[in-house]
Design a protein around this nucleic acid. Structure first.
Lengths: 106, 106
DNA sequence: GCGTCATACATCGTATCATGAGGTATTGAT
DNA sequence: ATCAATACCTCATGATACGATGTATGACGC
């Protein structure tokens, strides 16, 4: 998929991945894989950004000798998803603009 | 609208604006305004990029004392729009992932 | 004649951001 | 012992949207 197109979906997508249940980096990547492939470096960058903007909080947990950082969505994070839903209406309008067949002589 | 979200639509959108009829910068901005607001600096950057990647060709025309540069979509430009349509299916799938209500306890 | 707006193009610096390459460390299977 | 899977992280690079800024013409009001 086109990288630029992907960009706009990433933040909302990561937030959606922890929306219903706290999750951690490695699992988020796996959960998103069927929908959108993203590398670890990309995800951790995004998680840092979302944390810095108070979209989520972090909690470290020891699990079978390995560190896990569980991410929990905040009110603002949920608000971010709502913003995405609003933007979606505009996107649909743009989609129609791009795909319209003008009818004019053809 | 979220800038990142906009990014992915811009190229296809500009190509769509000249798809049915050759057009020039100033007019493209006006035509797109109801759907998507973009500044002149952004558009000209995009047009340069699309020209460099052979998505469109340019033709200068003198019009009432002012210069106009008409842009014409190429086969590759049309192909780019088709790519967008293909990507759209993935986007819909991601959209559903983001907006799904998990059902689980709520 | 002068200011101002619309038309029409352009460049440059800045900030944001995705990603590959590379790194650390543990568990568990071959 | 070796290797894959799990799980985290950093850094340099390249792409790119956009505000600020600049140039120039035509039309309109005063």
């Amino acid at each position: 998929m086109d990288i630029q197109l992907k960009r706009g979906l990433l933040d909302a997508c990561v937030l959606a991945a922890i929306k219903n249940e706290d999750s951690y980096g490695y699992k988020i990547i796996k959960d998103m894989k069927p929908y959108l492939d993203l590398s670890e470096s990309t995800l951790y960058t995004i998680l840092k950004r979302l944390e810095a903007s108070d979209m989520l909080t972090v909690r470290s947990v020891e699990h079978e000798g390995r560190l896990r950082k569980y991410y929990h969505i905040t009110q603002q994070g949920q608000q971010r998803i709502e913003e995405f839903k609003k933007d979606w209406k505009e996107i649909l309008s743009i989609y129609r603009f791009i795909t319209r067949e003008d009818g004019r002589h053809e």
